[in-house]
Amino acid sequence: MKLTYQDAVEESSFILTNFNCNPAQQLLQDKGYYKILWAKEKDCSLLVDGYKVHLEHNQVLFSTTLHVLEIPKESGMTAIVFNREFYCIRDHDHEVSCNGMLFFGSSQPPIITLNKKDVKSFEAMFLVFHEEFETRDRIQGEMLRVVLKRLLIKSTRLVKEMKGITEMPGSQMEIMRKFHVLIEEHFREKHQIADYADMLFKSPKTLSNIFYKAGYPSPLAIINERIILEAKRLLLYSEKTAEQISFELGYKEGAHFSKFFKSHCGIPPAAFRAEHKLQQKTVQT
């Protein structure tokens, strides 16, 4: 199944699919798509940035335009796929407040678990999506956007409940969201808490206290995690050398980056790449 809405003028795309056909599988190779993946029929497994992720029945995963996914054709998954031109998470953040929560909220894509009430809500929204693909008129795109916004708002609320931050003061929650968004924009050149604290008009200590009280990893740990994730992606999915990657991630000396990578991953960058390639060959044979 691959139901597609496209606007040639805006270059916008919105797709409803289960990845069980070659055209749908091609979406996984195309960059620039956000993906909302619902294990609607059964438990399923997929690869995210080369690592296996298991979704239980009625769990939902939110993937950014940066994540590299591999999904089996018979996964039993239902997915929404859309690009920035259809709905820009950053430009419309004032509408749904999902930036820094559902998308770009951490190095790993968030996963929520739907209870019976949530499942009914999701089923109702997906039913509307299906109905809209049966109606081709000039307001079809806007109708799909309306339901997508409702889905994003509902999902953002569920993520807040999952992370136990629904009772946090709104101002502190906004600081956490903005911190994650700023990391996504600047992690290649800014590696210190003070860099982000300055942009948020807070002291490094105040910023660290906010994350500590919320039960989150420290801001520095989150910054380092984002750098490591990007380093792994480049090592696994590009031909760039470790030295080239170190420069791209803001390290003036390759040795400094290699030491940083090894301290977090246990092995140097080159060894990490070689080990993963060996694992791929083993799986293929």
Rank of each mutant, 00 (worst) to 15 (best):
L114G: 03
K120L: 13
I245G: 10
E74S: 07
I80W: 09
E253G: 04
F187V: 15
L278M: 11
C98V: 04
L61Y: 00
S121Y: 10
Y251W: 03
K52Y: 01
G105E: 00
L152S: 11
M125V: 14
R233S: 00
I139G: 05
E230D: 13
G50L: 15
L16I: 03
I80R: 13
A255L: 15
F261L: 03
E70S: 07
C21T: 10
K281T: 15
A194R: 00
M143S: 14
Y196K: 02
S97R: 02
Q280R: 13
R90I: 06
S218E: 08
E253Y: 12
L235Q: 08
L66E: 15
F62Y: 02
D49E: 09
S13R: 04
E56Y: 04
L151A: 13
R84H: 05
L207P: 03
G266N: 14
A274Q: 11
E11G: 03
K259I: 04
I210T: 01
T113M: 12
V9L: 15
Y251F: 12
P109S: 03
F261C: 02
F82D: 10
T166V: 08
T282D: 15
I223L: 05
K116V: 09
K190S: 08
L151K: 04
R150S: 14
Q29G: 14
Y251K: 04
E142A: 06
N83Y: 06
D43T: 12
V119G: 08
H256S: 10
I112V: 05
H264V: 11
L47M: 15
I227A: 07
T78E: 11
F126N: 08
V48W: 00
L16N: 11
F103A: 02
R84V: 04
M101L: 13
D118H: 14
E189Q: 12
E132W: 07
K154F: 14
V60G: 02
M125R: 08
H180R: 09
N115S: 13
H264W: 04
H54C: 07
F179E: 00
T78Y: 15
D7W: 10
R233L: 05
G100Q: 02
Y51L: 15
H256I: 08
A270I: 09
S218T: 14
K52R: 10
S155N: 03
F86D: 02
N224Q: 12
Y5E: 05
Y34I: 05
E123H: 15
Y196N: 01
L148R: 05
I89P: 00
K205T: 06
T241G: 14
A270S: 08
G105A: 14
I15F: 09
L66V: 03
D118G: 13
K163N: 05
T65W: 02
L27P: 03
Q29V: 06
F104S: 03
F126C: 08
P217I: 09
I15T: 04
